[in-house]
């Protein structure tokens, strides 16, 4: 569940990290609302022994970062190839407010890298395109997503469909903002699996196998 893992999922853990490249498991997970990305993320984080950074946890961290000058300063001091790349991306784009949410979201995600983690959404798959990461997408069609949301929240399929569309629109907007800073000719994902034909455990198993085959850290 969000925030319940014992691995780093707070600003303290981020400040304790040493910056640079990751030697610990790092996975980004994307998916339509209702596709099961969160469930897969939680199971994967537990299996890999790393923190889960879902929407709630990551937003909380970014908010704290914005409010804490010490953490801000620490993040600003972080160096390394990844940091340099995204810093450059902000400097060549004009008209963006450096004090806004996005720059500190990016810095926070960069700070997660050394300790590893499973990061859900937030355009992390674009930000970390050059990291030792597996970028997973959990996929389901809109009908299945709506059915799951309806069952989870006890609402009608129609209401679930509307809710899903609204959430997806917000997510796409954020990811578009990220993409504006991180345009890439690389693929957006390394692996996309259908949660219509695979269970959460099966997706976790296949994802870890894919990480091993690609010589990505799994422990």
């Amino acid at each position: 569940m969000p925030g319940q893992t014992t691995k780093p999922s707070t600003t303290d853990d981020l400040v304790g990290s040493n910056g640079g490249e990751n030697t610990k498991p790092l996975v980004t997970i994307s998916g339509q609302h209702g596709a099961g990305a969160h469930e897969v993320g939680a199971a994967l984080a537990e299996k890999l022994g790393v923190g889960l950074f879902d929407y709630r946890v990551l937003d909380n961290i970014v908010t704290k970062v914005n409010d804490d000058q010490n953490i801000k300063s620490w993040l600003d001091r972080q160096k390394g190839a990844l940091h340099a790349n995204w810093m450059k991306s902000f400097t060549y784009k004009s008209g963006k407010d450096m004090t806004s949410y996005l720059p500190y979201l990016v810095r926070t995600i960069m700070a997660i890298v050394p300790n590893g983690g499973v990061i859900i959404g937030h355009g992390a798959h674009l930000i970390l395109v050059d990291a030792n990461v597996l970028r997973l997408k959990v996929e389901s069609g809109p009908k299945v997503c709506a059915q799951r949301i309806a069952a989870k929240h006890g609402i009608t399929i129609k209401a679930a469909g509307k809710l899903s569309a609204k959430v997806n629109k917000e997510r796409i907007s954020l990811v578009q903002d990220v993409y504006d800073h991180f345009p890439t000719e690389k693929t957006y994902y390394d692996l996309s699996l259908s949660s219509e034909i695979l269970s959460v455990d099966q997706i976790v198993k296949i994802t870890i196998a894919a990480m091993k085959e690609a010589n990505l850290p799994v422990r």
Partner: peptide, 26 residues
């Protein structure tokens, strides 16, 4: 559109043999 597939893989990271193994496993 990845929704029309059961599995999509970035081949940058894998040899054809590795891809086939992952596909058959899935």
């Amino acid at each position: 559109d990845t929704a029309y597939y059961d599995m999509v893989i970035n081949t940058d990271m894998y040899t054809p043999e590795q891809l086939v193994n992952l596909v058959i496993m899935t």
